[in-house]
Protein backbone atom coordinates (compact mmCIF):
# COMPACT_ATOMS: atom_id res chain seq x y z
CA UNK A 1 0.00 0.00 0.00
CA UNK A 2 2.76 2.42 0.97
CA UNK A 3 6.31 2.15 -0.23
CA UNK A 4 8.92 4.65 0.85
CA UNK A 5 12.28 4.43 -0.87
CA UNK A 6 15.37 6.33 0.17
CA UNK A 7 13.36 9.37 1.22
CA UNK A 8 15.34 12.53 1.93
CA UNK A 9 13.69 15.73 3.05
CA UNK A 10 14.89 19.04 4.39
CA UNK A 11 13.47 22.18 5.83
CA UNK A 12 14.97 25.54 5.02
CA UNK A 13 18.00 23.78 3.63
CA UNK A 14 18.59 21.59 6.70
CA UNK A 15 18.33 17.88 5.92
CA UNK A 16 16.03 16.14 8.40
CA UNK A 17 15.13 12.86 6.71
CA UNK A 18 18.21 11.11 5.39
CA UNK A 19 17.12 8.05 3.53
CA UNK A 20 13.99 6.42 4.88
CA UNK A 21 12.87 3.04 3.59
CA UNK A 22 9.56 1.59 4.65
CA UNK A 23 6.98 -0.79 3.27
CA UNK A 24 3.49 -0.90 4.71
CA UNK A 25 0.95 -3.49 3.56
CA UNK A 26 -2.81 -3.52 4.03
CA UNK A 27 -3.88 -4.74 7.44
CA UNK A 28 -0.56 -3.92 9.08
CA UNK A 29 0.23 -1.76 12.05
CA UNK A 30 3.65 -0.14 12.15
CA UNK A 31 5.01 1.66 15.17
CA UNK A 32 7.66 4.33 14.73
CA UNK A 33 9.62 5.24 17.81
CA UNK A 34 12.72 7.29 18.36
CA UNK A 35 14.23 10.07 20.40
CA UNK A 36 12.98 13.66 20.27
CA UNK A 37 13.93 15.48 17.15
CA UNK A 38 14.77 12.36 15.19
CA UNK A 39 12.37 13.21 12.38
CA UNK A 40 9.20 11.28 13.18
CA UNK A 41 6.83 14.22 12.74
CA UNK A 42 8.77 15.33 9.72
CA UNK A 43 8.16 11.96 8.09
CA UNK A 44 4.47 12.19 8.94
CA UNK A 45 4.26 15.73 7.56
CA UNK A 46 6.08 14.84 4.37
CA UNK A 47 3.67 11.97 3.79
CA UNK A 48 0.70 14.29 4.37
CA UNK A 49 2.15 16.86 1.96
CA UNK A 50 3.25 19.76 4.10
CA UNK A 51 4.84 22.21 1.67
CA UNK A 52 7.49 23.58 4.02
CA UNK A 53 9.39 20.32 3.70
CA UNK A 54 11.34 19.82 0.55
CA UNK A 55 11.80 16.30 -0.66
CA UNK A 56 15.31 16.20 -2.06
CA UNK A 57 15.57 12.54 -2.96
CA UNK A 58 13.63 9.30 -2.98
CA UNK A 59 10.13 8.08 -3.81
CA UNK A 60 6.88 7.40 -2.08
CA UNK A 61 4.17 5.40 -3.71
CA UNK A 62 0.74 4.96 -2.25
CA UNK A 63 -1.68 2.47 -3.77
CA UNK A 64 0.47 2.55 -6.88
CA UNK A 65 0.41 6.35 -7.22
CA UNK A 66 3.29 8.74 -6.77
CA UNK A 67 2.22 10.30 -3.51
CA UNK A 68 4.73 13.13 -3.69
CA UNK A 69 3.03 14.56 -6.77
CA UNK A 70 -0.33 14.97 -5.05
CA UNK A 71 -1.56 18.04 -3.19
CA UNK A 72 -2.24 17.58 0.52
CA UNK A 73 -5.99 17.56 -0.11
CA UNK A 74 -5.69 14.92 -2.82
CA UNK A 75 -3.58 12.74 -0.54
CA UNK A 76 -6.34 12.97 2.06
CA UNK A 77 -8.93 12.17 -0.60
CA UNK A 78 -6.84 9.16 -1.70
CA UNK A 79 -7.03 7.91 1.85
CA UNK A 80 -4.03 9.26 3.77
CA UNK A 81 -4.93 10.57 7.20
CA UNK A 82 -2.56 12.32 9.57
CA UNK A 83 -3.59 12.69 13.18
CA UNK A 84 -1.54 15.74 14.18
CA UNK A 85 0.81 15.75 17.11
CA UNK A 86 -0.36 19.30 17.73
CA UNK A 87 -3.84 19.79 16.25
CA UNK A 88 -4.37 23.39 15.17
CA UNK A 89 -6.98 25.61 16.80
CA UNK A 90 -9.07 27.38 14.21
CA UNK A 91 -11.34 30.02 15.73
CA UNK A 92 -14.41 30.91 13.74
CA UNK A 93 -14.59 27.64 11.79
CA UNK A 94 -17.26 25.43 13.28
CA UNK A 95 -16.22 21.84 13.85
CA UNK A 96 -19.34 20.45 12.28
CA UNK A 97 -19.21 22.66 9.23
CA UNK A 98 -15.57 21.88 8.68
CA UNK A 99 -16.10 18.18 8.93
CA UNK A 100 -19.06 18.17 6.61
CA UNK A 101 -17.08 20.10 4.03
CA UNK A 102 -14.18 17.69 4.40
CA UNK A 103 -16.30 14.56 4.21
CA UNK A 104 -18.17 15.78 1.16
CA UNK A 105 -15.07 16.90 -0.70
CA UNK A 106 -13.49 13.52 -0.02
CA UNK A 107 -16.67 11.76 -1.16
CA UNK A 108 -16.83 13.83 -4.30
CA UNK A 109 -13.27 12.83 -5.17
CA UNK A 110 -14.14 9.20 -4.59
CA UNK A 111 -17.17 9.49 -6.85
CA UNK A 112 -19.71 9.27 -4.06
CA UNK A 113 -22.62 11.63 -3.70
CA UNK A 114 -22.57 14.33 -1.04
CA UNK A 115 -24.18 13.59 2.29
CA UNK A 116 -27.13 15.76 3.16
CA UNK A 117 -27.35 17.36 6.58
CA UNK A 118 -29.51 14.61 8.05
CA UNK A 119 -27.35 11.72 6.85
CA UNK A 120 -24.23 13.52 7.88
CA UNK A 121 -25.53 14.08 11.37
CA UNK A 122 -26.55 10.48 11.84
CA UNK A 123 -23.12 9.24 10.74
CA UNK A 124 -21.54 11.80 12.97
CA UNK A 125 -23.52 10.62 15.97
CA UNK A 126 -22.51 7.05 15.35
CA UNK A 127 -18.81 7.91 15.08
CA UNK A 128 -18.96 10.17 18.09
CA UNK A 129 -19.79 7.16 20.20
CA UNK A 130 -16.68 5.44 18.96
CA UNK A 131 -14.38 7.94 20.65
CA UNK A 132 -16.88 9.05 23.30
CA UNK A 133 -16.64 12.64 22.18
CA UNK A 134 -19.12 15.15 23.53
CA UNK A 135 -21.60 16.81 21.19
CA UNK A 136 -20.91 20.10 22.91
CA UNK A 137 -17.33 19.98 21.80
CA UNK A 138 -18.39 19.77 18.18
CA UNK A 139 -20.67 22.75 18.40
CA UNK A 140 -17.63 24.90 19.13
CA UNK A 141 -14.99 26.27 16.82
CA UNK A 142 -12.52 23.70 15.57
CA UNK A 143 -10.21 22.67 18.44
CA UNK A 144 -10.60 26.09 19.99
CA UNK A 145 -10.05 25.90 23.72
CA UNK A 146 -10.07 22.09 23.60
CA UNK A 147 -7.91 20.38 26.19
CA UNK A 148 -4.99 18.32 24.93
CA UNK A 149 -6.95 15.11 25.34
CA UNK A 150 -10.02 16.54 23.62
CA UNK A 151 -7.92 17.56 20.66
CA UNK A 152 -6.50 14.06 20.32
CA UNK A 153 -9.93 12.54 20.56
CA UNK A 154 -11.15 14.92 17.93
CA UNK A 155 -8.37 13.75 15.62
CA UNK A 156 -9.50 10.16 15.92
CA UNK A 157 -13.09 11.22 15.50
CA UNK A 158 -12.16 12.94 12.25
CA UNK A 159 -10.33 9.83 11.20
CA UNK A 160 -13.47 7.80 11.83
CA UNK A 161 -15.47 10.23 9.69
CA UNK A 162 -13.04 10.22 6.78
CA UNK A 163 -12.43 6.46 6.65
CA UNK A 164 -8.81 6.55 5.48
CA UNK A 165 -6.84 3.63 4.14
CA UNK A 166 -3.60 4.77 5.74
CA UNK A 167 -3.70 6.45 9.12
CA UNK A 168 -0.63 8.07 10.56
CA UNK A 169 -1.07 8.82 14.24
CA UNK A 170 1.60 11.21 15.42
CA UNK A 171 1.88 10.87 19.19
CA UNK A 172 -1.85 10.63 19.56
CA UNK A 173 -1.21 9.02 22.94
CA UNK A 174 1.03 11.75 24.36
CA UNK A 175 -0.62 13.56 27.23
CA UNK A 176 -3.57 11.19 27.45
CA UNK A 177 -4.54 9.70 30.78
CA UNK A 178 -5.20 5.98 30.98
CA UNK A 179 -8.94 6.23 30.36
CA UNK A 180 -8.54 8.52 27.40
CA UNK A 181 -5.79 6.31 26.04
CA UNK A 182 -8.06 3.30 26.25
CA UNK A 183 -10.89 5.14 24.52
CA UNK A 184 -8.70 6.46 21.73
CA UNK A 185 -7.02 3.09 21.17
CA UNK A 186 -10.39 1.38 21.13
CA UNK A 187 -11.51 3.78 18.46
CA UNK A 188 -8.43 3.10 16.37
CA UNK A 189 -8.80 -0.66 16.78
CA UNK A 190 -12.42 -0.62 15.72
CA UNK A 191 -11.50 1.24 12.56
CA UNK A 192 -8.82 -1.28 11.69
CA UNK A 193 -9.49 -3.74 8.91
CA UNK A 194 -7.61 -5.98 6.54
CA UNK A 195 -7.83 -3.23 3.93
CA UNK A 196 -6.33 -0.38 5.83
CA UNK A 197 -3.07 0.21 7.60
CA UNK A 198 -1.88 2.28 10.54
CA UNK A 199 1.39 3.94 11.37
CA UNK A 200 1.63 4.96 15.01
CA UNK A 201 4.33 7.34 16.10
CA UNK A 202 4.85 7.09 19.82
CA UNK A 203 7.30 7.42 22.66
CA UNK A 204 5.44 5.05 24.91
CA UNK A 205 5.23 1.32 24.94
CA UNK A 206 1.93 1.50 26.86
CA UNK A 207 0.06 2.54 23.67
CA UNK A 208 1.35 -0.59 22.00
CA UNK A 209 -0.37 -2.71 24.64
CA UNK A 210 -3.61 -1.43 23.16
CA UNK A 211 -2.70 -1.00 19.53
CA UNK A 212 -0.52 -3.99 18.91
CA UNK A 213 2.02 -3.38 16.15
CA UNK A 214 3.20 -5.89 13.59
CA UNK A 215 6.46 -3.98 13.22
CA UNK A 216 8.39 -1.53 15.30
CA UNK A 217 10.91 0.85 13.74
CA UNK A 218 13.37 3.13 15.41
CA UNK A 219 13.99 6.45 13.73
CA UNK A 220 17.19 8.15 14.65
CA UNK A 221 18.85 11.10 13.00
CA UNK A 222 16.60 10.92 9.98
CA UNK A 223 16.97 7.22 9.31
CA UNK A 224 15.30 4.01 10.36
CA UNK A 225 18.17 2.44 12.22
CA UNK A 226 16.43 -0.61 13.59
CA UNK A 227 13.29 -2.57 12.84
CA UNK A 228 11.75 -5.43 14.70
CA UNK A 229 8.56 -6.80 16.14
CA UNK A 230 6.63 -5.62 19.16
CA UNK A 231 9.33 -7.02 21.41
CA UNK A 232 11.64 -4.24 20.24
CA UNK A 233 9.32 -1.72 21.85
CA UNK A 234 9.57 -3.53 25.16
CA UNK A 235 13.32 -3.56 24.89
CA UNK A 236 13.36 0.18 24.19
CA UNK A 237 11.10 0.81 27.12
CA UNK A 238 13.53 -1.00 29.33
CA UNK A 239 16.86 0.13 27.96
CA UNK A 240 16.15 3.54 26.43
CA UNK A 241 17.68 4.70 23.15
CA UNK A 242 21.32 5.04 24.06
CA UNK A 243 22.34 1.59 22.89
CA UNK A 244 20.62 2.17 19.58
CA UNK A 245 22.25 5.56 19.16
CA UNK A 246 25.63 4.00 19.87
CA UNK A 247 25.04 1.22 17.38
CA UNK A 248 23.87 3.68 14.76
CA UNK A 249 26.64 6.17 15.36
CA UNK A 250 29.21 3.39 15.21
CA UNK A 251 27.80 2.10 11.95
CA UNK A 252 27.83 5.51 10.32
CA UNK A 253 31.48 6.24 11.13
Amino acid sequence: MLTIKNLHASIEGTPILKGINLEVKPGEVHAIMGPNGSGKSTLASVLAGREEYEVTEGEVSFKGKNLLELSPEDRAREGVFLAFQYPVEIPGVSSTNFLRTAVNQVREYRGLEALDAVKFLSIMKEKMKLVEIDQKLLSRSLNEGFSGGEKKRNEIFQMAMLEPTLSILDETDSGLDIDALRIVSNGVNQLKSSENATIVVTHYQRLLDYIVPDFVHVLYNGKIVKSGTKELALELEEKGYDWIKEEADAASV
Binding site: G49, S71, F81, A102, V103
Partner: peptide
Protein backbone atom coordinates in the same frame (compact mmCIF):
# COMPACT_ATOMS: atom_id res chain seq x y z
CA UNK B 1 -2.48 22.73 5.97
CA UNK B 2 -4.69 21.26 8.66
CA UNK B 3 -7.80 21.84 6.57
CA UNK B 4 -6.15 20.54 3.41
CA UNK B 5 -4.94 17.46 5.23
CA UNK B 6 -8.61 16.67 5.83
CA UNK B 7 -9.37 16.76 2.14
CA UNK B 8 -10.55 20.33 1.79
CA UNK B 9 -9.25 21.98 -1.39
CA UNK B 10 -6.77 24.78 -0.90
Amino acid sequence: FYLQARGIGK
